[in-house]
Design a protein around this nucleic acid. Structure first.
Ligand SMILES: NC(=O)c1ccc[n+]([C@@H]2O[C@H](COP(=O)([O-])OP(=O)(O)OC[C@H]3O[C@@H](n4cnc5c(N)ncnc54)[C@H](O)[C@@H]3O)[C@@H](O)[C@H]2O)c1
Ligand SMILES: NC(=O)c1ccc[n+]([C@@H]2O[C@H](COP(=O)([O-])OP(=O)(O)OC[C@H]3O[C@@H](n4cnc5c(N)ncnc54)[C@H](O)[C@@H]3O)[C@@H](O)[C@H]2O)c1
Lengths: 281, 281
DNA sequence: ATGTCTTTGTGAACGCGTGCACAAAGATGG
DNA sequence: CCATCTTTGTGCACGCGTTCACAAAGACAT
């Protein structure tokens, strides 16, 4: 559907930039806290501080929603809470299914932050027959066989995938085929979906690796790097090493490339997509 | 420390753009899968497809690391795995502590994806005395009192926060004071940290809200919006409504603003930072 | 009513990230 | 040794996002 040319324009919704949309929940959270304290109005400066962003950015973000502030005073907290909720679609209830009720899936099911924002856990689904019927967070787990029926009966449009990586694409395909158009993926795999379906991923492992990168950088600055050769010579040495590797391989008989590697995120099963990082001499 | 002027320049590491760093783990995952299948080389096109990115982007990303490819052939898988691992700092072991062993914390502790990438769970920490000593994922939970000692004894520089939102800032402060310089935060709060400390957050609720926004937009396109006034008139009506709200408040006696709202992410406790979205008529 | 003071809303400049398109590098075959 | 063909590495242009800075809006006091 849709004539989507490139990968996805994504941003051209109806004015509101994607970056702004991503911050609205942040503002909403801060505003909700103020609302609880019965604070009637906030300035962009105060709210920006509470949300951890720049005040000019916040004002510009709000300007996309309309003119909801009063110069010299600030923003009306209650009213802004309503407007943002409305813009995000939180004034309606979103039934959500969680697929894969293991460690993570169970934790998600037990998470209170779901319901409090207009998201309702409509069903918990798992492939393990032993899980079927078992209550998790007060809801009986249902078997994968019923996935399509559950989606349709409840009008579910948002699905959460918490299965092992090997099953994720397959689960995703079924969810989409059954009518789900938004997916939150916790499995460490790239999901392929048709146009019109949104996927967001949460990958703990990636976050940690990014932290590790910066951590290493910090450590490397304090002490001079005690690692390898220095900056520029490294590339040269690297190229040399690479050539050596190839020569060894050729000598071993494997001429040229062979395997095709297709496009695949692959459908190998295995427990997870995870393997220790290999490091040749 | 450091003369950090503005909030955080963040990006100016040593050439490698932040956006590239964020993708390296993605490439690494795809490469690891290829490595398992003993695929010797990949073209940028193939690898990009597997990682779900544009091939030009991938090539540019790799160009920041040096010239590791061979024209006409592609990239040596094993060698690239090593180089990326090295750049990300995964060739060394990173001891990690998880603070807050509840639903989520326990799931994280049980997650295999940690160890497989050079991250080692050094300790599990919880404030609940009843948890102390209990084994989770084969590791005995330790009490918060020992936090500082644990950090120092194990040389921990990365901490994961999975406590309720109300405790997060406090836990964060203790971690930082004890020497932690990278934090992965799962609690729905904005953490304030001194310069030189990196914070990354994972917020499930925010992800869902972003999905809901797009979901609503999709629904709104199919059917003409059956919601309120149309696009431009809305801002006007909004302003009107806002004024009405203020007049009511004034009539009620609360002249002008009162509460200060400080800068605070607040230190109220409460079970979570979560509250149902309020919506005035 | 008028002036002052606060705070919004936004024009404009800038920097980062993305993707196109192509020249150069190098492998492969004759 | 030369020609051809594949694929990298990157210059360049463009668009998005961020931030500054300020005029206008409006509250509040007198
Ligand atoms: N546990 C974590 O903290 C964590 C963190 C980040 C990412 N992840 C990822 O989340 C996913 C789940 O992690 P986990 O620790 O809960 O694993 P788990 O093994 O505890 O749970 C997986 C569950 O999925 C079910 N399942 C398997 N195939 C299925 C299918 N085709 N359809 C429906 N259900 C199926 C299994 O029966 C099991 O109950 C994994 O991909 C993991 O890499 C987990
Ligand atoms: N469960 C989820 O799927 C999920 C998803 C997204 C975000 N979160 C967030 O993650 C956090 C944890 O969620 P949860 O469901 O595991 O909650 P939980 O209540 O099950 O667990 C919280 C744990 O933290 C411990 N704790 C409380 N104060 C502490 C302190 N000062 N020091 C150390 N430990 C302390 C408690 O004893 C408890 O064991 C919350 O902030 C929640 O909003 C959870």
């Amino acid at each position: 559907m849709a004539t989507g040319r490139t990968h996805r324009p994504a941003t051209r919704s109806r004015g509101i930039p994607e970056a702004t949309v991503a911050r609205l929940p942040l503002y909403l959270r801060a505003l909700t806290a103020l609302s609880e304290r019965s604070v009637p109005t906030v300035s962009s400066e105060e709210l920006a501080a509470a949300a951890g962003v720049n005040s000019a950015k916040l004002r510009k973000d709000f300007s996309y929603l309309g003119s909801y502030g009063t110069r010299g005073v600030g923003y009306d907290v209650e009213y802004l809470v309503y407007q943002i909720s409305r813009e995000l679609g939180l004034t309606q209830d979103w039934p959500v299914v969680i697929v894969g009720i293991g460690n993570l899936g169970a934790a998600l099911a037990n998470y209170g932050g779901f319901a409090s924002r207009g998201f309702r856990v409509a069903a918990l689904i798992d492939a393990d027959p032993a899980m079927a019927g078992k209550p998790v967070a007060g809801i009986a787990v249902q078997h994968t066989d019923e996935l399509e029926k559950i989606i349709k009966d409840n009008g579910v449009s948002i699905g959460v995938i918490a299965t092992p990586a090997g099953a994720a694409q397959q689960v995703c395909d079924r969810l989409v085929a059954a009518g789900v158009t938004s997916i939150l993926n916790f499995a460490p795999t790239v999901l392929t979906v048709p146009d019109g379906v949104d996927v967001r991923k949460v990958d703990l492992s990636i976050e940690l690796q990014i932290l590790a990168f910066h951590e290493q950088r910090k450590a490397g600055e304090d002490a001079g790097q005690d690692d390898d050769e220095s900056d520029d010579a490294r590339a040269v040495a690297a190229r040399e090493a690479r050539r050596a590797v190839r020569e060894v391989r050729e000598a071993a008989g494997k001429t040229g490339r062979d395997a095709d590697a297709s496009t695949g995120a692959s459908d190998r099963k295995g427990p997870d997509g995870d393997v220790p990082a290999v490091m040749p001499a």
